[in-house]
C-alpha cells in the first residue's frame, strides 16, 4: 500500500501548551489506507498529536507535510464527546456538507446516505441533542463520513459509551476504513486496539517511541515503555 510518498509526515513536531511540552520533537509517517491506533499513558500527548495533525493546534516547532507535496488531505475528526448543533440529526450532517462547500441539491441525499450507513435513518428527523450517547457518536461518525475524508482522526470515541454502544461505533469505524479512509484513533481500550489496529503508534512523553504492526506490538513491543504499559494495563496476563 505504501507506494510513493506517505499520506502524512511529521518531523520534529513540538507543541508547548501552557508551559508544558505536550509533544517533544515527534517524528511520524503515516502511509495511506491503514488503521493506526495511538496508544500511550494519560498525558503522553495522544490527544494533542491528533489535534495538531488535524490542524486544531498549531505546532510550536517542526512541520507536517501532506502527500509529500503539501496538499492538505481532506479530513475530519470525531471527539470523545460529540458536539451536536441544536437541530435534527439530518441537519447536522447537512451543515457539515454545507461548510465543506457541497452544493445544496445533493446535500440531503448524501446526508441521508451517511445516516443509513451508521444505522440512524430512523432518527434522521429527531433533534440531535436528545439522541442517546451512542447514537450521537454514530451521528458524529456519519457527519465525518459524509465528508468523504482521506483521513479520519478519532480521539477516544468510545470512552464515554457503554460496551454495546462502543461495539456499534467500532463496527462503523471498521466500515469507514474498509471504504478507504485512513483511520488514526486513540483509545485506552486494548481489546478495541487489537480488533481495529493495523499498526500501533506508541507515545511516551511527547515522542513516538515505536510504530509497529499491531500483531508484533502486542506480542513483542520494542520499547521498554510500551512493554511496561501493556503489563500495567493487562495485569491478568
Amino acid at each position: 500500500m505504501a507506494d510513493g510518498a506517505p499520506l502524512l509526515e511529521a518531523r520534529g513536531l513540538t507543541v508547548v501548551l501552557g508551559g508544558v511540552r505536550a509533544l517533544d520533537g515527534l517524528d511520524l509517517a503515516l502511509a495511506p489506507g491503514l488503521r493506526t491506533i495511538v496508544l500511550g499513558a494519560n498525558g503522553a500527548g495522544k490527544s494533542v498529536l491528533l489535534r495538531t495533525l488535524h490542524g486544531l493546534v498549531a505546532p510550536t516547532a517542526g512541520e507536517i507535510r501532506w502527500h509529500g507535496n503539501g496538499r492538505r488531505a481532506r479530513q475530519a475528526m470525531v471527539f470523545q464527546r460529540p458536539v451536536m448543533l441544536r437541530r435534527s440529526a439530518l441537519a447536522n450532517v447537512e451543515y457539515a456538507l454545507a461548510v465543506a462547500g457541497v452544493p445544496r441539491p445533493v446535500r440531503e441525499s448524501r446526508a441521508r446516505d451517511a445516516l443509513g450507513r451508521v444505522g440512524l435513518s430512523a432518527v434522521a428527523g429527531r433533534s440531535a441533542r436528545v439522541l442517546s450517547g451512542g447514537e450521537q457518536q454514530r451521528l458524529a461518525l456519519a457527519r465525518a463520513w459524509a465528508l468523504e475524508p482521506e483521513i479520519l482522526f478519532l480521539d477516544e470515541p468510545t470512552a464515554s459509551l457503554d460496551p454495546g454502544a462502543a461495539a456499534e461505533v467500532e463496527r462503523v469505524v471498521a466500515a469507514i476504513a474498509a471504504a478507504g479512509t485512513r483511520i488514526v484513533m486513540t483509545t485506552h481500550n486494548l481489546g478495541q486496539a487489537r480488533r481495529l489496529a493495523d499498526e500501533i503508534v506508541f507515545l511516551h512523553a511527547g515522542r513516538a517511541t515505536e510504530q509497529t504492526a499491531a500483531d508484533r506490538f502486542f506480542e513483542h513491543p520494542l520499547s521498554p515503555e510500551a512493554e511496561q504499559y501493556l503489563k500495567g494495563e493487562l495485569p491478568w496476563k
Binding site: R51, H54, G55, L56, A76, M77, F79, V83, L85, Y95, A96, V99, A100
Partner: peptide, 12 residues
C-alpha cells in the same frame, strides 16, 4: 467553549 473545536474541525 462547547462548539469551538468541532466548528474549527469542520472548517467553519
Amino acid at each position: 467553549a462547547e462548539y469551538a473545536e468541532q466548528m474549527r474541525s469542520l472548517g467553519v
